[in-house]
């Protein structure tokens, strides 16, 4: 049980800047084993950059991340990423693409097939990715990420490009698999509704810093019609938009129009 559980993460004073541009400013964040955390914020706020640091694709300017008490260095072995685009290899079959999640190392076939079964696409195993729909492609990407039974799943707006219905289906699939396999999950999204549907905690990042850390204590599976759900969503939205700012922008907009 213990070795199957997700990793825990301690992010300590994490900073990242590109030249003079500070993208992340002293981020402190603790994520428990098996927790589902959503990171939200406007585009360009640094939420994807934070995720890339956790995956080890980026190097911090200062501060660091500890995973299960060990400092992260280089690519994170425990983590698997789902990107916004599925990033399937068009020249490999669906099964082989899933096998990429296992490094195509010996014996990948059975486990890849198992992963495909988890997302319900085992009957498409021999097809080329090109003939699949967008939702199916993301399912394959999910199977690929699941295949190695990761202890940390990083979801970088994986559902952003899908239509509303497919997105809801994928959300419940992700929730189901997370409940079953108990990995730690970090979801970057711009969709407040999605964040509250899935996460135990929603972190709002603004200009590279944590602005809000909002626990979501609702029973799963979550009901979007629940008043408590709507209340949380409203609170989150108000924080993201920052009511004062909207008023500040209005006169500027008018100026542009009158030109």
């Amino acid at each position: 049980m213990a070795q199957n559980a997700g990793v825990e993460l301690h992010i300590h004073q994490l900073e990242k800047s590109y030249g003079h541009l500070a993208v992340l400013r002293k981020i402190n964040l603790n994520i428990k084993s098996g927790e589902f955390v959503a990171i939200v914020g406007k585009s360009g706020c640094g939420k994807s950059t934070l995720l890339r640091h956790i995956s080890g694709l980026e190097k911090a300017t200062a501060g660091g991340i500890k995973q299960n008490q060990h400092a992260l260095k280089g690519l994170n072995d425990q983590a698997r990423i789902m990107f916004q685009d599925a990033r399937l290899l068009p020249w490999l079959s669906v099964l082989e693409n899933t096998g990429v999640g296992l490094g195509l190392e010996k014996g990948w076939k059975n486990r890849a097939y198992w992963a495909l079964q988890q997302v319900g696409l085992e009957q498409r195993a021999e097809d080329w990715p090109a003939i699949l729909s967008g939702g199916q492609k993301q399912r394959i990407a999910l199977a690929r990420a699941l295949a190695s039974k990761p202890k940390l799943m990083l979801l970088d707006e994986p559902l952003g490009a899908l239509d509303a219905l497919t997105r809801m289906e994928m959300q419940s699939l992700i929730e189901e698999l997370w409940l079953e396999q108990q990995f730690t999950a970090i979801l970057v999204t711009h969709d407040m509704n999605e964040a509250i549907t899935l996460a135990d905690r929603v972190i709002l990042i603004e200009e590279g810093a944590v602005k809000l850390d909002l626990p979501v204590d609702l029973q799963r599976p979550r009901n979007r019609l629940n008043p408590a759900f709507a209340e949380l969503e409203e609170e989150l939205l108000a924080n993201v938009l920052g009511k004062v700012r909207i008023h500040q922008y209005e006169p500027r907009l008018r100026k542009v129009e009158s030109k």
């Binding site: 995956s55 694709l57 690519l75 072995d77 983590a79 698997r80 990423i81 990107f83 685009d85 990033r87 290899l89 490999l92 990429v100 999640g101 490094g103 195509l104 690929r144």
Partner: peptide
Amino acid sequence: GLIEMGKVYRLSRWHLFSK
């Protein structure tokens, strides 16, 4: 993006090249 994906998924150098 595909090469980055391959690295995240820990493909060996040979697989990164051949696949």
